[in-house]
């Protein structure tokens, strides 16, 4: 796992961004930036060299699922792995996220161990 990669954390609650940032730092990821919804995140992704996105689903403005679809629809971004960390727990939503090309799905509340496990799995699969 290359922990030097640039990571974007997207969540409308600053406390959740802070928690994820802290957990990522604990796992060695120090190059982490934040956005408060999909509409803020997308231009950041288009202008920056991000290699990983952690996003919430339910946000004002652009929702996480739409951000995921926008990333997959953009030729320059579609390779970026996306991990969803969300309270949304309907089976249909998880299926929709899988169909949209999500790389991992974590339901809140979650533990540090879950985040670590899913992150490792995402990068293991990508090789």
């Amino acid at each position: 796992m290359n922990t030097n990669m640039k990571v974007l954390v997207v969540d409308d609650f600053s406390t959740m961004r802070r928690i994820i940032k802290n957990l990522l730092r604990d796992l060695g990821f120090t190059n982490v930036q934040e956005a408060d919804d999909g509409a803020t995140a997308l231009p950041m992704l288009q202008n920056g060299d991000f290699e990983f996105v952690v996003t919430d689903w339910n946000m004002p403005g652009m929702q996480g699922i739409d951000l995921l679809r926008a990333i997959r629809a953009d030729d320059r971004l579609k390779h970026i792995p996306v991990l969803m960390v969300t309270a949304e727990a309907k089976k249909e939503q998880i299926i929709a996220a899988a169909q949209a090309g999500v790389n991992g799905y974590i339901v809140k509340p979650f533990t540090a161990a879950t985040l670590k496990e899913k992150l490792e799995k995402v990068f293991e699969r990508l090789g």
Binding site: N58, Q63, E88, A89, K90, E92, Q93, A96, K108
Partner: peptide, 12 residues
């Protein structure tokens, strides 16, 4: 039936 965001599920 849709994928609309619902927030935390309290009666899973």
């Amino acid at each position: 039936l849709n994928e609309k965001a619902e927030g935390p599920i309290i009666d899973a």
